[in-house]
Each structure stands twice: as structure tokens, then as C-alpha cells.
Simulated scan of single mutants.
Amino acid sequence: MSYRSTIARQPQALADTYAAARSQLAGMDLSILDRPLIGVTGIGASFAAAVVVAAQLQDGGRRAFAIRSVDMAGGLDLCDALVGLSHRGRSVETLAALEKLPSAGRLAITNDAASPLALAADLHLKLDNGSDATPSSTGYTATLLAAGMICEKLAGETADAFAAIPALAGEVLATAAGKMERLGRLFATRRAIDCVGAGAAMGTADEASLLIREASRIPAAAYDTRHYLHGPMESMDGTTGVVIFGAGRELELARHLERIGCPALLVTTAEGMEDGELLTVIRVPASRNVIAQGIIDIFAAQLLAAELSDAAGLTDTKFRYRMSDTKVPDSKAA
């Protein structure tokens, strides 16, 4: 399935995952996660998702943090409970993280109940997002949605921040699509693109930078907003671009980038920001739940990555570099 078609089918993929997760969570005891320190881990896009999930746990008063899977491979006792994210459940590093921490309560979120990661965990929640493409679209957003529903249950939340997400996905994708022709012109032939956000949006920025790298092969990197102001933005100019997520200091950053002649995309919930000569604004609905906001915010970046991929003549081009040691082999494919 093509990258653009998987982006477009996210409303259905998210609706299916919502229904599946709701059914599973109705009978799931999450007490093994109700511990003093919760780690959330993954690699690649799943680590970007882990940053968003950890931020939601923190927002709910939990001591939680995102930790890279490779940092747990040594078996250090770094957390009391661990949530492992991996769409197919075959990431070697994430599997090692769960296996090396047997004393912690372990929950895995994958789309395969028979995957190595699912089998290594005490609890497993299965996604129902259907097929995904490279780069990931439905896998990333479905993982966030399922993790968000887990966070709600763990916190005893009665409000449901995710029931409306499938419908919102269609609305936001349609709104963002209306800005892509303009962004395609402004972001043409960029030598590098930075992606910037704060808190949970740092995870969104990380995922956006990965999408741009994978889809268009343009060098891209992610930065925390305040860190970005302390030097990293110094290299940006008329030959580069910046993608910004947020409604705080990010607004002035967007204005400043336009003043220095650098094209920028601002994905924001803020009112009153308008397109400029080089600034493109995509206003999105606001959610009090940071995971729901992370899902809403990433749609524009997915479409931008597809636009840049098409412009580079790389539409649905397969990865050039395939590593032999990053996934547990699938015996069914042998």
C-alpha cells in the first residue's frame, strides 16, 4: 500500500484501533503499571511516540519518562514498570529492553499478539490499524491512540479523549491538504529541515523529522523549542526550512524565522496566526490530552513528507539501507 493511501485511511485505522483497544481494556487489569516510576520505550518512530506517551503520564501526575531501548539492554534497574512500543513487535532493541527488566511490570503495544515483544510482556494490547507503509503513518498514530487509552484507564479518567479522534483525523487531513501546494513551493530544494516542539511536541517533532528523512531523503533533525533558541537555529537561512509544533514560544519563533528569510510551517492551536510570505500556518483543534494532541498535530507533517517525497521523485521508493540486525526474523516469512 502506498504512503499517501495509508495517510488517507487513518480515520478508519484509528476507528478500528479505538474499538479494538476499548474491548481489550474493558477486561484488562493494569495494576502492574501502577508503580512509582514508569518507563516508556521504543526505537525509531516508536521512540518518538514514547516521548509523547511519557509526557501524558507526567501530565497525569505520574513519575514517567521516555527511555531509549538501547539504554536498557544492559539490564540496569531503571524503572518499576515499562511500556514497550513496536508496531510489528519485532524491534530487537525494544525486545531486549523488556527481556532485561523482568522484575518490572511490562506492557507491550503491537499489532501482532504472537510477536516476540508481545510474548515477552506481562500484558499486551493489540492494534487494529490494518496495513501500514514506509514511512509509518497508521502504525504511529494507532500506537499513540492505544497508549493514550491505557493512560486514561490507569489514571481512572472518565472523559474519553479518543472517541472523537477518527473523525478529527479526516477533518485535519483535509485542512492540511489545502496548504500542501503552497508548502511544496516554499520547501522545494531545502538542504535541511529542522522540526521543533516542546514537551510532548518534542516527540511529534522527532517523528516529523524522521518522516522527512525517510520519505524525501532531506537531512532533518528535531529540537526542543527552548534548546533550539540557544544556538541550533543559527544555521537556518533561505536554503533551509523549519516545521514548528506549538502555541507558546513557538509563535515568536515562527515570526522570527520569516524575518530572517527561512520558510517555516507552524502547526498550532493558537488563534490569530496567519500565513506570511514565507510562513505557512495550519491551525488544528486543541485537546487537553497531550497524546490526542500529538495525533492531531502529526497529520500535517505526514502530508508534508509525502509532498516532498513526490517533489524529489521518491514516491513510495523503498528504503536504500536495510539492516539485517534490527528486527527479529518472522518465521512465517521464512
Rank of each mutant, 00 (worst) to 15 (best):
E171H: 02
A96N: 13
L119H: 02
Y321I: 08
F299V: 03
E181N: 15
G44N: 03
R217F: 00
V242A: 14
V52P: 04
L95W: 10
L278P: 09
D71R: 11
G241I: 06
L308G: 05
E93R: 05
F245A: 04
V290C: 13
S31M: 02
P166N: 06
P219Y: 00
F319G: 11
I7W: 02
I218D: 01
K126G: 05
V51T: 12
L78W: 07
P219T: 02
I67P: 01
R288T: 12
R288H: 12
V196S: 09
A13S: 09
G75N: 05
L278N: 12
A8H: 10
R9W: 05
P232G: 08
R63A: 13
I165Y: 07
Q56S: 11
L168R: 08
G89E: 01
A147Y: 04
V83P: 02
S216L: 13
D59T: 04
A163W: 01
T17F: 05
N129D: 03
A15H: 00
G238P: 08
A177G: 10
A142V: 01
D77H: 15
V52L: 00
V70G: 01
Q58H: 02
Y223F: 15
C262Q: 03
M1I: 11
V172E: 02
T143F: 03
S91M: 03
L154M: 12
I295N: 14
D297W: 03
A50K: 01
A113P: 07
L37S: 05
P232M: 07
A54V: 05
G156A: 02
P36S: 05
I298P: 03
E250L: 05
K126M: 12
T134M: 10
D224V: 05
G84S: 00
R288E: 14
S331N: 08
G89D: 01
H256F: 15
V284K: 11
K126F: 01
L57P: 02
V53Y: 04
D206M: 14
F187W: 11
T143K: 09
L123E: 08
I295W: 06
L95E: 06
V196K: 01
T268L: 08
T280V: 15
E207C: 08
D59E: 10
A19P: 01
A50F: 09
R62Q: 05
S86W: 03
A81L: 01
Q293L: 12
G75I: 13
A49Q: 00
I218V: 15
N289Q: 05
V70T: 13
A174V: 03
T280N: 07
F319H: 04
R322F: 06
A305R: 03
Q302L: 08
L279A: 07
L304R: 00
